[in-house]
C-alpha cells in the first residue's frame, strides 16, 4: 500500500511541470486541482490555472485570496469577468508555461466541452511536459460502469488533443461516503481505466468523511485530500436528510410527524 501525504507530489507528477485535471463534470477536478496546487506550492513556486468555462459556480478562482496568501499564483479572469458566464480565458497560461521555475496545475472545465480548450495550448504543453489526469467518480451519472467510463473519458481525451497520462479515481458520495463506497467505486474505475489502457495515478479520499480508515489499493497511491468548495451553510452538510414520507410535511399533519 502506498499512502501519500496531502501535500505530496504524485509519482506521475514528478518529472512533469504541468498537472492537468480533466474529466466529466462533477467528477471532482476542482477539489483535486486545489489540493494539487497546495502540494505544488509546498514544493516550490506554483500556479493554478482556472480554465473552467463550463461551470458558473464552485470554481477554483473563488479561492484566489487563499492561494495568493500561500504564494500560489492564480490565473483566471479577474474583476467582473471572474463572475461572468462567458468563455473568458486568461492570457497568463502562456506566460506561466514559459517560466521553467513554476509548477502549474490546470483545472479544466467538465466534459469534452471543457477539455476542447486544452487543444489550443497543446503545442506549448508538449514542449514543457505535462501529466493529463482524467478524474472520475463512478457515483456520477453517465460514468457508473466501466463501459460508460471508457466512452466518457475517451471523448474527453480526444477533445483535449493531448494524450492522457493516467486516470484518477475519486469515488465518493460527499458526506455519505463510506469505505464500501470507496472500495466498490474504485473497482469500477479500475475496470474503466483498463478498458482505456490507462494506468491509475491515484485513489483520492477525504479523511473528514472516513475517519481513520485508509483505502488499500495495492500499487496505486492513496491520496488524502481536503475539501474547499463548500456551500455557504457548510456546517450543516452532514445533516443530509434521506428520502422520507413527504406527507408528514403537509400543513395540518399531526405535530409528532411534522418537521424533524
Amino acid at each position: 500500500m502506498t499512502l501519500l501525504k496531502k501535500t505530496e507530489i504524485l509519482p506521475l507528477e514528478r518529472e512533469r511541470r504541468v498537472t492537468i485535471l480533466a474529466g466529466p463534470y462533477g467528477s471532482g477536478k476542482t477539489e483535486i486541482a486545489i489540493n494539487r496546487a497546495y502540494a505544488a506550492g509546498r514544493a516550490g513556486r506554483a500556479a493554478i490555472v482556472d480554465l473552467d468555462i463550463v461551470n458558473p459556480y464552485f470554481r477554483s478562482r473563488e479561492l484566489r485570496e487563499e492561494f495568493e496568501r500561500k504564494g500560489i499564483q492564480v490565473a483566471a479572469p479577474r474583476g467582473h469577468l471572474a463572475q461572468a458566464d462567458l468563455p473568458a480565458l486568461t492570457g497568463d497560461m502562456e506566460r506561466l508555461l514559459a517560466d521553467p521555475e513554476v509548477r502549474i496545475v490546470v483545472d479544466v472545465g467538465g466534459d469534452p466541452a471543457g477539455a476542447r480548450l486544452l487543444g489550443s495550448y497543446a503545442p506549448s504543453l508538449e514542449k514543457v511536459g505535462y501529466a493529463l489526469f482524467l478524474v472520475v467518480n463512478p457515483n456520477r451519472p453517465f460514468v457508473s460502469t466501466p463501459e460508460e467510463i471508457e466512452t466518457a473519458l475517451g471523448e474527453i481525451e480526444g477533445a483535449s488533443k493531448l494524450r492522457a497520462t493516467a486516470v484518477l479515481s475519486n469515488p465518493h458520495l460527499i458526506q455519505l461516503t463510506t469505505p464500501q463506497v470507496v472500495e466498490e467505486g474504485h473497482q469500477i474505475v479500475l475496470a474503466g481505466a483498463a478498458r482505456l489502457g490507462l494506468p491509475l495515478g491515484g485513489l483520492f479520499f477525504v479523511p473528514e468523511f472516513l475517519g481513520s480508515w485508509v483505502p488499500d489499493c495495492g500499487d496505486v497511491p492513496a491520496v488524502p485530500m481536503d475539501r474547499f468548495m463548500l456551500p455557504p451553510w457548510f456546517e450543516d452538510i452532514r445533516r443530509f436528510a434521506p428520502y422520507r414520507d413527504r406527507r408528514s410535511l403537509m400543513e395540518g399533519a399531526p405535530p409528532e410527524n411534522k418537521g424533524e
Partner: peptide, 27 residues
C-alpha cells in the same frame, strides 16, 4: 400546503426561510 417546522415548541425567536436560506438558518 406544505411546511417544515423545527423546534417551535418554546421558541422565543422564530426564523422563517425557504430553500437555500433555510439551510443557512439551520446552521
Amino acid at each position: 400546503v406544505r411546511v417544515e417546522t423545527v423546534d417551535l415548541d418554546g421558541a422565543e425567536v422564530v426564523l422563517c426561510a425557504y430553500g437555500t436560506t433555510s439551510r443557512v438558518c439551520r446552521t
